[in-house]
Amino acid sequence: MSLQTSWLARCLVVAWMAAPACVMAQQDPRWAEKMFEVDKLDFGVVATGAECKTQLKITNRYVETIQITGVATGCRCAQASTTVKDLASGQTGIIDVSMDTRNFSRKRDSVVTISVYEPSKGALATVRIPVSVYIRTDVVVEPGSVNFGTVDLGQSRELKLSVAYAGRPDWKILQVQNRNPNIEAVAKEIGRGGQRVDYELLVTLKPTASAGVIRETLTLVTDDANNPHVPIPVFAQVESDLTVTPSAINFGTVTAGQVKTQTVVIRAKKPISIEGFNQGKGDKALTVQMPSDARPVHLLPLKFTAPADAGDYQNDIQVIIEGRKEPITLRIQAKIVVPATPAEAPAAEASDAK
């Protein structure tokens, strides 16, 4: 091989190795930015001590797995972190972002920097999300959020916050704006003197709250013409005292008359007794062996005998728990098929043979 040929071959190899790293960038220089649902974060105007936390979502819109190789912020007033390292195609990851409103004040601006990498093409990118907040020095909220934590379904919980204002002696909270009917909030003035005004904020989570996560924001509406609103985050995790696995049962395709069994697991925080079992339909397709004692975990073998009628089967059954107002509802589904009847053979013609 001549020197010129060898040099050309080396150049082709180098060009071939470098090309994949540029493919995604050449197709769309903003490929990494498009994985984020927002391009900036602004907490607005908040009180000193207010909890400023949010979740930045990143969704892999591409076929290849994307790696998050680094998360950082531009100043000590902001924090960002994630436990996600690899994002498969279509997967969404969470980056937790917060601002320190206790040790910093007034206008604070930072940047959350996220580094991502696509290994198969060697594509590297850095996304910068600006984050800002204005921290008031005249209003202090303690604690900085209404965090009810974990609450049992049907239970009520109350929390008290203190709101202190330093400035105008006639400053007032006019109302508390609240969009969630399962939350009640009342601001009560408890002190006024000199340039300081103190309020107590009583927040109640009502027993009507449904199971699940509650994320809301209460807004204190004041008579401050320049900054009338003071936002206060609210969080709660409402958990049922019972968990049912599975809550919906699909027996799949079954032949008429066929019997299938699935076990339903009912877990409670304390021993419970099962009083009864009601079917929504009167076909008696479902039977269950009822336990006779109280226990925190019940295993209910549910036997399904497929009815004679072909088609989609659906039924809601209720498991009645002692001392519980609302029964547990289980949805049953199946597809009933009826085997085809073999065609009868034509009658043999009479023979004329003697």
Rank of each mutant, 00 (worst) to 15 (best):
V259A: 11
K260C: 06
T261P: 02
V264N: 08
V265N: 09
R267L: 06
R267K: 13
K270E: 15
P271K: 06
I272D: 00
I272A: 09
S273M: 09
S273R: 14
I274L: 15
I274A: 03
G276W: 00
F277M: 08
N278A: 12
N278T: 02
N278S: 12
Q279G: 09
Q279S: 14
Q279P: 01
K281R: 14
K284D: 15
A285D: 10
T287F: 07
V288I: 15
Q289Y: 00
Q289I: 09
M290W: 08
P291S: 07
P291V: 05
S292Y: 07
D293I: 10
D293V: 07
A294S: 15
R295P: 02
R295A: 05
R295S: 12
P296I: 04
P296V: 05
P296R: 11
P296F: 06
V297R: 11
H298W: 03
L299S: 13
L299Y: 12
L300D: 02
P301V: 04
L302Q: 07
L302M: 14
K303F: 00
K303G: 03
F304G: 07
T305A: 12
A306E: 10
A306N: 10
P307N: 09
P307G: 10
A308L: 05
A308S: 14
D309Y: 07
G311D: 11
G311M: 04
D316E: 14
Q318G: 07
V319F: 06
I320R: 12
I320W: 00
R324K: 14
R324Y: 08
E326P: 00
T329A: 09
L330S: 06
